[in-house]
């Protein structure tokens, strides 16, 4: 596996070298264009500068395409086996996500009832498996909404332009929940309910928990049934490591969990080392799923018939 990693590291370096090569070419191009403005050098310097700038842009494009190709290969040839091996019945599919065309519906994301419907929906790095007998499905999700901004054009006229704003970029998980319950419960930090269902606010005995999370339920008893003192403590612990970014919902005997990180979970960035340290970071991300199962005791099946 280590050899494989080195092979990918080499491919990554090749792509980075092309990008790096673009930098001096770009510098020369700019220099040429600047010198061209002086009378001594004339038009030929401007032309050479422009050609060099175009060539530099071409190198950047090629470099980034090569990098994307490397990343795709890395995920398919290395990360797929690596991550799948970290959990029971593990399956990592880089291109797949909560997408309708691949059999999974964006509805799986909106079923959380706290993630707002997007104008642009991206989903990738599907990862499913079993931890201590608990089934989970997860995927990276990036959601954007259309916003309009007004600006003045060069003639001073007011104009309006459309732009896409990312409001969620992170990971969404579904877990089998170990208790049967009636009604829905939302435990939210930065989100709002996105449903017409009638939710009421629930206040628990823990003042700290009430301060951190806003709990809404269609049935107050269910909220107390699901959120035992231990469960609340575990949510607080998870929140401590990811402050301000969590959302949980308990719907149809499933636990939905969303974490906004603002970046892809399993990505390799240019000019960052591809080594054991990065794999360790990926293992930690998978560790979050382990923590959820262990801390929330989702593997305790004493409340449900097998």
């Amino acid at each position: 596996m280590k050899e494989g990693l080195q092979g990918h590291q080499e491919r990554k370096r090749r792509a980075e070298r092309v990008i790096l090569l673009g930098l001096p070419v770009l510098a020369l191009g700019i220099l040429g264009a600047v010198l061209g403005t002086a009378e001594t050098f004339g038009d030929w310097a401007v032309t050479a500068g422009a050609i060099l700038i175009v060539f530099a842009v071409l190198l950047f494009v090629i470099g980034f395409v090569l990098f994307q190709r490397f990343e795709s290969n890395f995920k398919h040839e290395f990360l797929k086996d690596y991550l799948s091996g970290l959990v029971e019945e593990g399956e990592f599919v880089p291109k797949k996500g909560f997408k309708k065309i691949q059999g999974l519906d964006p509805g799986d994301v909106y079923n959380t009832e706290f993630i707002e419907r997007a104008d642009r929906f991206y989903s990738y790095d599907y990862f499913r498996g079993k931890i201590d007998g608990v089934d989970f499905v997860s995927s990276d999700v990036k959601l954007q909404r259309i916003e309009y901004e007004t600006y003045r054009d060069k003639d001073g006229r007011m104009k309006r332009r459309k732009k896409y704003v990312t409001y969620f970029h992170g990971r969404v998980f579904h877990f089998d929940f170990n208790k049967d319950f009636t009604g829905n419960v939302l435990v939210l930090e930065r989100y709002k309910p996105q449903t017409r269902r009638k939710y009421s606010k629930v206040e628990f005995e823990s003042v700290d928990f009430n301060k951190k999370f806003r709990t809404l339920a269609t049935n107050e008893h269910t909220a107390f049934y699901i959120l035992t003192p231990h469960f609340m403590e575990s949510l607080m612990k998870i929140e401590k490591n990811h402050p301000g970014n969590l959302g949980f919902s308990f719907i149809d005997n499933k636990l939905y969990f969303a974490i906004h990180t603002g970046k892809p979970t399993f990505s390799v960035r240019p000019f960052r080392r591809l080594d054991e340290k990065l794999l360790e970071k990926f293992r930690e991300d998978v560790g979050l799923i382990h923590n959820l199962v262990d801390d929330l005791k989702l593997n305790r099946k004493i409340f449900k018939e097998d």
């Binding site: 005995e205 008893h221 107390f224 049934y225 035992t228 004493i302 409340f303």
Partner: peptide, 27 residues
């Protein structure tokens, strides 16, 4: 075993009801 499973669940419901009652009483 099924009865034990059942009583564990009933116990959880009882705890939930007790906590909910006390939270409301406190308010």
């Amino acid at each position: 075993t099924n009865l034990q499973r059942g009583i564990a669940d009933v116990e959880e419901h009882l705890q939930a009801s007790r906590r909910m009652f006390n939270a409301n009483v406190s308010r």
